[in-house]
Amino acid sequence: MSKYLVNKFLFTVDRDTTLTERYREDPAGTVAWWEAEEANKILNSIDAERSTWLSFAEEERQALATHDHVALFEMGAHPFLTLTLWIAMFERDWDEPLGMQLDYAAKLAHVRQPYPDISC
């Protein structure tokens, strides 16, 4: 499990409009590219100083590659990061205000407290 790396994916994709659109259109391809090229970049450092050990667990890779926000929630991805990115990608597909957000919540209706731990 690497909740940190899942969060890093959500964080870096959300803040880059090009990446946000790429992830919307090609989730599996974007996740594969990102894990190969970006996952080990220490933000703010040069390539020679990459980390050497970060990779997704299979269920994390799968959840990201299928846009499965319910699975991401259940595995303890930071809910603010997931929500913000989902708004950026999918709010446009809904006609009514907050339609996306309410659907997002409804798909999590089965969740009971305490919610999954979001500590990394």
């Binding site: 929630f73 603010f80 997002y104 919540a105 999590l108």
Partner: peptide, 8 residues
């Protein structure tokens, strides 16, 4: 609540 079942 943000990103959970009780949001919005």
């Amino acid at each position: 609540e943000l990103g959970g079942p009780r949001q919005f």
